[in-house]
Design a protein around this nucleic acid. Structure first.
Lengths: 235, 235
DNA sequence: GTCTATAGTCAGATAGAC
DNA sequence: GTCTATCTGACTATAGAC
């Protein structure tokens, strides 16, 4: 379809120079940015198509509906990112030869692909990272119905890796901890709340994802490796 | 205004029995539930007024606008909750007589008021708790502009308490940790993502706030008390 | 305080020409 | 594949009768 994407011969045989990005990709790029900024339901297709300089009808033509557009925007980045995560984890485990991996290494394999994406505009950059965080907190079935399917493999894979490293935690407890980790990361990356912090934290740049992750890592390692039981009393 | 609220004499002198909850409160109650479920922008005033059995115009009459309604819904619960938090912390510090408080105690004083609210329908119950979590992740200025003001005092109060207990962390690092804690709690309580877990976690009920918090506490204690520096390498 | 009626704007989606 | 034009319905907000 797009001569710039796959086939060099097709490119030279096409009669008119196309714009550097075709309609479908322009829509995806712009939608990524606006969805990340305003969330799903506060974003209108009119805003997207206007800013992308495409016709209003183009979204329905190419993606079917607003919900399917959101899904396409999200999948485009998450699928390769999750693939990277699993590959990193696999490579590490192969090297470790049966030994349980250190917590920090497991977390790194989870976070680094996201960090890489945040630093590379061709992988969505900070727009995608904010979208990633926001998506986990989106209400409404349009966004959530496809999320579990996308994350099923990754969650299972990390649960088993963590189970080896943290044998004292029950499966149930481990599930919750994974949930907490994802939640902390998602919330932090969504960055909605981070603005509150700036005044009290003079040198924190909320767009400095790498810096944020360096603060995040020890927190997560500490949380994951905590002992299991504390009982709430006297309520 | 409402005979059931303040003045018993006024009640007997009113000519007609009013419904058990007046219009304003009915709107607040219903709005709390729907905002919690669908988020700010996916919720329409028509849905709220219909379900509350009040006229569409009533919201604008009593609250001015949709945004101000959200603010009113939120403040009604959060203000007393944050008051409780600070009172608990003050009482604990008074008892400790200058000694730094244990981390677990600090966290408890933060979480218990929320837990109490979640168990008491008169304080909003699970509806409010979900709203509380979701609010922190809401995009859009309508919701966020009033949040920092509401939390300023609480954050400062907890930062100083934590600084005593964790003297090895810099102010900046402490700010981030507080941010992470709030994020983890918010994300968990919003419970949007929790549905993914149910299948893999046979005995977890996402409405069992108390159970969730018991899992959350050790994670947060571990995260907060972690050492400061881990450097990301090889990226 | 509560109601009806409506203004004014915007939404997502589609039919049909090119 | 892209466009215009339009349908249908929803939205917030307000004016004005009661």
């Amino acid at each position: 379809m797009n001569p710039f994407r796959s086939n060099v011969l097709a490119e030279s045989s096409s009669q008119h120079m196309k714009p550097p990005v075709d309609t479908k990709d322009r829509i995806l790029d712009v939608a990524e940015q606006i969805f990340a900024e305003k969330g799903y339901s506060a974003t209108s297709m009119r805003t997207i198509t206007t800013r992308a300089n495409v016709n209003l009808a183009a979204v329905n033509y190419h993606f079917g509906s607003k919900a399917q557009l959101y899904q396409a925007v999200f999948q485009r980045r998450v699928a390769p990112m999750n693939k990277q995560r699993i590959e990193m984890l696999d490579a590490m485990e192969k090297k470790a030869a049966g030994q349980p991996l250190p917590l920090e290494a497991i977390l790194r394999s989870f976070i680094e692909p996201a960090l890489r994406a945040s630093l590379n505009p061709k992988q969505g950059g900070t727009n995608f990272i904010q979208l990633l965080g926001r998506t986990h907190a989106e209400p409404g079935p349009e966004v959530h119905d496809f999320l579990p399917l996308l994350y099923e493999k990754v969650k299972d894979r990390y649960r088993t890796a963590l189970a080896k490293t943290l044998p004292d935690l029950s499966q149930e407890e481990l599930s919750w901890r994974v949930h907490f980790v994802i939640g902390t990361i998602a919330f932090t990356l969504a960055g909605t709340d981070a603005l509150e912090m700036i005044e009290s934290c003079r040198y924190c740049d909320p767009a400095d994802i790498e810096g944020i992750i360096q603060r995040l890592l020890p927190f997560l390692v500490g949380g994951l490796s905590a002992p299991a039981a504390i009982k709430l009393t006297s309520i």
